[in-house]
Design a protein around this nucleic acid. Structure first.
Lengths: 237, 237
DNA sequence: ACCTGAACACCGTTCAAGT
DNA sequence: ACCTGAACACCGTTCAAGT
């Protein structure tokens, strides 16, 4: 059995952490918000792997170890950065329209937001904070799946499939570089045509546009969900 | 313009690396094969993150730095381990049957093989070795997609979608722990029902079986591919 | 020809000392 | 109350020295 204390304890950064105005005025240089913003700023400039604690301290004009008064460890900073980014996912989404186009826009927005921050996303996977806001997108995805007419018992597992595809695919695509993709094309297209005819013929046409491939798979998934929901509705009559 | 030297240079471990019998008899304790096998053995025992160079040296009964005579760096060991695992993917696959069930079996096999070795798989993503064997599964996947009747121009992008789903999803699922999944269930199901009705009602039923969710998404993708291939065939008449 | 081991650079993190 | 900085543990890796 678990209680709220476990949850709070597992996610210290959801405690009331906002420093009061008074405390700010008292001259503190750091806060959780400031640290997370510095982290995101560095990623934007240096890239996803360009962040270490010393670099973060430098960005904040503070000793590298000062942030340990605000976060338990580095992963907690990343997870809070991811939670911060979560809030942006549902921003600028169409509030009206069919379930399919809204779900599509939602998952593409998730990919867009996290593509530049795969490490933060991976940290979030293992931490699961209790948030006041940020999970609107998850609730909405479930709501839209319900709206599709899919049988109730399939909703959790279909949701998971969509989530895995979106997050897994985004993290994976974000790791690739133009060079690594070109290398794969070269290797595949250079394989002996007698033993690997399909690689030899198709290798050159692979990995030209990761976003296009992602949208292709997403649309296939939505096609199948729509068809299955339609079949369910027919059965019910 | 690239030539074979670039490729070889980028992938040193595909040079003729097998030590001759004479060299072996001369009393060498190490070889690329032996090192990769030691790596895989450690992962099997200690888990995916339990491998470091000192541990690897201990496993081999050798100083940690001795392996640098055989591999450029740690990533090269992981990539060769991944390539080694690739050969197992097409083993034990049904050689007959419809394209759909064969493609399904192939991708499930890929997931099974790499689930225990996500780090190796991630190293492979960035290295792209030229292999004598190992890419049978990729060639086969393309062949089966062709067999499905999908229009030729969609084959590369659909292949990428399937690959991204399978690899991204496997790497992502492999990172999760029973504890992290339970934490997500608790957080979601504990959200206020007025603001997050779908999380409150469905949160508990999420993440109960990652393999089932993966198969669900895979079957949805195959559903959609089949339907699209069928529609293409109708159009052509 | 092959392996050893001291050593280096670079991490995340702790904790006693400063102000 | 908050930050500093020396220090530690743990990594991947280099290179001169051993056998």
């Amino acid at each position: 059995v678990f209680n709220i204390v476990d949850i709070i304890d597992a996610c210290p950064y959801i405690r009331p952490v906002e420093l009061s105005g008074a405390a700010q005025a008292a001259g503190e240089r750091l806060s959780r918000e400031v640290i997370v913003e510095a982290y995101l700023r560095i990623v934007e400039g240096q890239g996803n792997d360009g962040v270490n604690m010393r670099r973060l301290g430098r960005e904040l004009g503070v000793d590298a170890t000062a942030v340990y008064r605000y976060f338990r460890d580095k992963d907690e900073i990343l997870a809070m950065a991811a939670a911060r980014l979560l809030r942006e996912v549902t921003r600028d989404l169409p509030g009206t329209g069919g379930w399919r186009e809204r779900l599509r826009a939602l998952l593409l927005s998730l990919r867009r937001v996290y593509f530049a921050h795969p490490n933060a996303l991976l940290a979030l996977q293992l931490v699961a904070p209790m948030l006041d806001e940020g999970y609107e997108n998850v609730d909405l995805a479930l709501a839209l799946l319900r709206e599709s007419g899919l049988p109730e018992e399939e909703i959790p597992v279909v949701f998971e499939a969509l989530e895995t595809y979106t997050i897994g695919g985004t993290v994976f695509d974000a790791r690739a570089t133009p060079e690594s993709l070109e290398r794969w094309r070269r290797v595949y297209s250079g394989m002996p045509a007698d033993r690997f005819p399909n690689l030899a013929s198709t290798g050159r046409r692979l990995y030209t546009d990761a976003d296009k491939a992602f949208r292709c798979g997403l649309d296939l998934l939505l096609d199948a969900i729509e068809a299955k929901a339609h079949a369910t509705r027919m059965d019910e009559r």
